[in-house]
Design a binder for these strands. Structure first.
Lengths: 334, 334
DNA sequence: CTGTTAGCGCGTTCAA
DNA sequence: TTGAACGCGCTAACAG
């Protein structure tokens, strides 16, 4: 801005003190009706807008909340952001977004930028490649609260909110088995994510329960890029005994894998079946979507995350971190 | 934060002045090597982080850039945001997002919140329901620069960046005609958007050129909700002479309309053909995508938008608004 | 080389 | 009812 009008300017033009203007603007009772009116009038006339930076400096807050997540273009995360934003705005906060692109260094940089830039708290969903928590510990040391959501960090004392993916995976695999599909492969995420472990655990549990031998080549990790997913899916199809069904880490992995299948002439939901996590809205546009998906309620997760963060910001002393588990839901499509 | 360490604290512990500390920290040449080292050492030891709010107060900047757009969950916009963020971060700015949800009041509120919250500039893509520009004029009055992108406002003096949709529509409709499809309907956006006029103009131009009569019932506006699109698509199919092809406002409209067609037993790309705008990545997952789409390069648009905004922030005097047109590209899928 | 002083815009206590 | 003075945390012109 070229030169915004300040209280000082109003005071000067009215021949009063800045403190009088200050009080008049906040309708302090001890200000004469006449002066108050004159101040308000001139303020409006000069398009006076209080300088938020100055106010923040006094309040010792920025009213900025940082959100770091893998990719905004993934609908799961943009939905979560929407939820965070809705709550934040209602409480007078703004949301600053940063994307890690699943890259550790970028995540580290994003966190550092946020702290340098000034935020009152941070909400994070981990990059798939993040292996250590030093950057988060640093933030904790500064007394800036963090809440993890969905892709949460292991062994961190902060609040976090996530769904019970093991239970979700169990229900998903049970569903496949109930449909008579027993050659089930797992296209899992990167080993760095807790979410990957949880899916695996559910997968193993069900197969064991039904006495189905677990074939090592059936379990593969992808790094969440399209290329890697294609590679791993091709490997699965090249096996002597290719799987009848795939449990995919999420809808994006499922879609990329399904594309490979189609290219190889397989008919989805006939030659091969998919079940995945996320239940993203755009799957409803597919002619042959995964037969089932675990809804993870990103909106609810985002809402809960910010609801955990705000008290940590506004009343740090009485704040104790919480682990919140959001219920999942198996959505069957046919 | 409970109690961050300040320069004052460092100064106290070292028995020097705050200004000495300040200069030492920025490696001012006129500071004794010894003191400089002691200051840096203690700063690190006490986990000193400069208070950005105080710095911003002096610099008279917030280093925050506000972005207001219809919906983050639309991939077109999340891609644009990614671009904006990439450039912004490189220049030391952070991005604050607000969504209008295509609602005028929400857009108005978002703008007002941004100004109250403190931002150095704003990038906007209009809500479909926005009919007047008073809230933007207000911002202009405060000397805060605005750049419009994609859905730009009519009759505003600010910079803006958009694609030549008329030319795009022309090429798209020509493509349909060349394929022998002449009964072409237009599922257009809301009349409030300039982008809607432009598509219509292109549509009319081509039909006129080929001497194809324009049937009024073939041209419909949708408000960009799934329900309205379904309603209008059904109306088109209920006509005595239903269209062979649809030019859709964007991929979301196309997808919603295609869903209706499938439900009514039509085979996409056989009984009816679609061409749309945006060319969103997820269309590549469809078995029967629109046969062609106008790529609008959201990443390039976002990049250009912030490149127009930053000079306006950093050197207001020498800044003159620009209208930038990004080239489109017709992507043919088969 | 370092301290003193002033000021960014605002809120607030203490006097008058 | 209003003014004077101080402080939030930091930078910078001026002095020594």
């Amino acid at each position: 801005m070229v030169h915004a009008t300040t209280m000082k300017e109003i005071a000067r033009q009215l021949g009063v003190t800045v403190s009088t203007v200050s009080r008049a603007l906040q309708n302090h009772p001890s200000i004469g009706l006449r002066t108050r009116e004159r101040v308000h009038e001139l303020a409006k006339q000069l398009d006076y807008v209080p300088n938020p930076t100055a106010i923040n400096l006094k309040r010792r807050r920025t009213y900025n909340i940082g959100v770091v997540l893998p990719a905004l273009t993934e609908q799961f995360f943009s939905m979560a952001i929407s939820a965070i934003e809705d709550v934040a705005i209602g409480k007078g906060y703004s949301v600053v977004v940063m994307q890690s692109r699943n890259d550790y260094e970028r995540e580290r940089l994003a966190i550092s930028n946020l702290v340098k830039h000034g935020i009152d708290g941070i909400i994070v969903s981990l990059a798939s490649e993040t292996q250590n928590n030093s950057h988060f510990l640093e933030v904790n040391k500064h007394g800036i609260p963090i809440v993890f959501f969905d892709r949460v960090a292991k062994n961190m004392p902060n609040s976090c909110v996530y769904v019970d993916l093991t239970a979700g995976a169990i229900e998903a695999v049970e569903y496949l088995v109930a449909r008579g599909l027993t050659k089930i492969a797992l296209l899992n995420g990167p080993g760095t994510l807790q979410a990957t472990d949880e899916r695996l655990k559910g997968y193993v549990t069900v197969l064991n329960k039904h006495g189905i031998a677990i074939s090592r080549p059936y379990v593969r990790s992808v790094n969440l890029t399209k290329e890697d997913t294609a590679k791993k899916m091709n490997e699965l199809l090249d096996l002597d005994e290719p799987p009848q069904a795939i449990l995919a880490f999420n809808d994006y992995v499922a879609l990329d894998a399904m594309q490979v299948c189609r290219q190889r002439g397989l008919v989805i939901n006939q030659d091969i079946h998919f079940v995945s996590f996320s239940n993203l809205p755009f799957c409803s546009y597919l002619e042959q979507p995964p037969i089932a998906s675990i809804e993870q309620f990103p909106y609810e997760m985002g809402t809960k995350a910010i609801q955990l963060l705000l008290p940590a910001i506004e009343d740090p002393q009485h704040y104790t971190p919480e682990k919140v588990i959001i219920p999942y839901q198996l959505i069957v499509r046919e």
